[in-house]
Computed example of a mutant assay.
Amino acid sequence: MKGKLAFVAGAGVGYLLGTRAGRQQFEKIKTWASDTWHDPRVQGYVQEAEQAATDFAKTQGGALKDKAVSTAKATFSSTGSEDTSATWEPTDGPLVDADDANPDTPRH
């Protein structure tokens, strides 16, 4: 099934880029995508997503770094022990997911 899907996708891209009609259609799609991206409503969503990511990184960055360091130390330590479990407690408070970090954002 993957092979058929790849073939169809390749044929579609070849049509878009290889024929004059396909090239015109490609230009229409490219113009539509550019217009959509530069739409103020879309940019508003982009800015909200960037702000949410920044806020999440600020609140959870330290905890994520600490977990990565402790996991790496536990994984690469050469103690010869079979037990690779590491106890980890967040230092900056509990780790939350993106929905918890943005309680006012409507969920889809």
Rank of each mutant, 00 (worst) to 15 (best):
G22D: 04
G22F: 04
R23N: 05
Q24S: 08
Q24H: 09
Q24Y: 05
Q24K: 15
Q25N: 10
Q25E: 12
Q25C: 07
E27G: 01
E27S: 04
E27W: 02
K28R: 07
I29F: 03
I29E: 03
K30P: 02
K30A: 11
K30H: 04
K30R: 14
K30Q: 05
T31C: 01
W32Q: 07
W32E: 08
W32G: 00
A33Y: 02
A33P: 02
S34I: 05
S34M: 03
S34W: 05
S34P: 02
D35E: 13
D35K: 13
D35S: 12
D35T: 10
T36A: 15
T36V: 12
T36I: 09
T36L: 12
W37V: 12
H38W: 05
H38G: 00
D39M: 06
P40C: 11
P40Q: 14
P40L: 11
P40S: 14
P40I: 12
R41G: 11
R41W: 05
R41M: 05
Q43T: 06
Q43I: 06
Q43L: 15
G44Y: 05
G44D: 07
G44P: 00
G44H: 09
Y45F: 11
V46E: 11
V46D: 06
V46I: 14
Q47W: 10
Q47V: 12
Q47H: 13
A49H: 06
A49Q: 10
A49Y: 06
A49C: 09
E50M: 09
E50R: 02
Q51V: 07
Q51P: 00
A52R: 07
A52V: 09
A52S: 14
A53H: 09
A53E: 10
T54V: 10
T54A: 13
T54C: 06
T54R: 14
T54E: 12
D55R: 14
D55K: 15
F56L: 11
F56K: 03
A57W: 07
A57I: 07
K58W: 11
K58E: 12
T59R: 15
Q60D: 09
G61M: 03
G61W: 03
G61S: 03
G61D: 01
A63R: 06
A63H: 11
L64N: 03
L64I: 09
L64P: 00
L64M: 13
K65F: 08
K67L: 15
A68Y: 10
A68G: 03
V69I: 14
V69G: 01
V69Q: 02
S70R: 13
S70E: 15
S70T: 10
S70Q: 15
S70W: 07
T71G: 02
T71L: 15
T71D: 03
A72K: 08
A72F: 15
K73W: 03
K73P: 01
K73N: 08
A74V: 02
A74N: 02
A74S: 04
T75Y: 12
T75M: 12
T75P: 00
F76V: 07
F76Q: 06
F76G: 05
F76M: 09
S77K: 11
S77E: 14
S78D: 14
S78T: 13
S78M: 13
S78N: 15
